[in-house]
Design a protein around this nucleic acid. Structure first.
Lengths: 237, 237
DNA sequence: CGATATCTTGAGGAATCTCAATACTAGTGG
DNA sequence: CCACTAGTATTGAGATTCCTCAAGATATCG
């Protein structure tokens, strides 16, 4: 049924690889059509700012390619990255009038953009979509709580181990190998995500490498050698 | 309209003070009736465990009196409290098959309990309720991101200052004074919430007291003396 | 009023941060 | 194709914050 609907799609969604990973996968037929009518494709180069914390939140986004980071700042410049988003992730949940964080492109990215107001309207008419977004918000909430445990109670090495396992899981969900994947973000971004400095992250990588948990064959590539042992180190249960 | 509906209520909800603060406030008439049919009132004494992390998640709850803490543990016993819940808060969002944290009563508590399965069923029929829960999940998500910033990047004193302001806000929302309120939880719980030790929390309290930001007139009572200055200290923007 | 738990304070230690130097990587222009 | 440059990552040494352990003070409850 859904395959049929997709086969007959017009426009950019016709062969969008993100579809099965994202909220639009929950819609079909006429509902999907109404959804896509509200949509605009946009893209940004690595380093670009999609929006700034505090700006009026006119848009929400669906990531179809690349990686984005969500950044919160303290007045003196300390930063916390609250999440990395990639293919299939939805961006803009949980905002009132204005964005509660900035969003920056880590790599070149492509997104589907929606006017928040119009999507809200559609939400009221499509309970399926609302349900799907609620599910996602719930999952994100659980992930946020895991991250609180990490930030509040884990050591530097445990944090990095947890991060690598989470990224491995993401790679797997996106159809890649679970034990070898690209890390598109810089050490500094990882540090700001894990509540550490880039130096401490670097030392943790070195230690994990030295002790045979992982190897870094080249560039941004990570290979996980002993996933179970790494999981134990990370405090998985 | 809603007042009328409430006046004609039967049973325990008739004069529930939590109603305007919680999700049930979004329902009226027949919808509300169907909602309450699924409901059971339960209560626990301070210190009791409502459920444990990992247990099958058969129930969700709505807090009508008292304070609850959500606890996540690492295998070696380190703990992180991911939130304190009080009147009007909803408990059980974001769980799959099993609870992703334990819940313990900080004070004596009263709650409305729902079988998750049956509430899920009702959710599909009452978009209003679903919308209301989605709103709450969104707000919680934003709060979780603030907490990540706190845990990842704030100093001990900044964390305690932020915590006190958040509690002041909660007291105010519940109809109390914003500059004087009870802290029902122990220093140790505050520490586990802020990613610190109880000693460090204690020292931060002492420092805030010494510098005139707050006073602790007696017992669990906190008085905020210089809210703006405290906000600046906490990194409010 | 006494017993017990909680909170506060103090001193020393450990993990992480800061600052600085060196090594690596990728992209650029010769 | 290779050297150069700019940015990023790694490593090292010392400083700082917070933690650990221990004692004393305060609050709570029977």
């Amino acid at each position: 049924l859904r395959l049929f609907a997709r086969d007959t799609l017009m426009g950019p969604c016709a062969k969008c690889g993100a579809r099965d990973l994202s909220i639009c996968g929950s819609l079909s037929g006429d509902d999907f059509h109404r959804f896509t009518e509200l949509m605009h494709e946009v893209s940004f180069h690595a380093g670009a700012t999609l929006f700034l914390e505090g700006e009026p939140a006119y848009h929400v986004f669906n990531v179809t390619a690349g990686t984005i980071k969500l950044v919160k700042l303290l007045p003196d410049g300390r930063r916390q990255i609250t999440g990395f988003l990639s293919v299939g992730d939805f961006l803009g949940l949980g905002h009132d009038k204005s964005y509660s964080y900035s969003a920056e492109a880590v790599t070149d990215v492509r997104l589907c953009r929606f006017a928040r107001e119009r999507l809200d309207g559609l939400l009221d008419e499509l309970p399926t979509l609302q349900h799907c977004l609620f599910e996602r918000a719930s999952k994100e909430l659980a992930a946020a709580q895991d991250q609180m445990l990490l930030l509040g109670r884990k050591t530097a090495v445990e944090r990095v181990a947890s991060f690598l396992l989470a990224e491995a899981g993401r790679a797997e969900r996106q159809g890649g190998a679970a034990d070898e994947f690209q890390l598109p973000m810089a050490r500094n971004d990882i540090a700001d995500y894990l509540g550490l400095t880039s130096e401490t992250v670097s030392r943790a990588f070195t230690k994990l490498k030295r002790e045979g948990y992982i190897s870094l064959p080249q560039g941004q590539l990570v290979r996980i050698q002993r996933r179970d042992a790494l999981g134990e180190l990370a405090g998985a249960r």
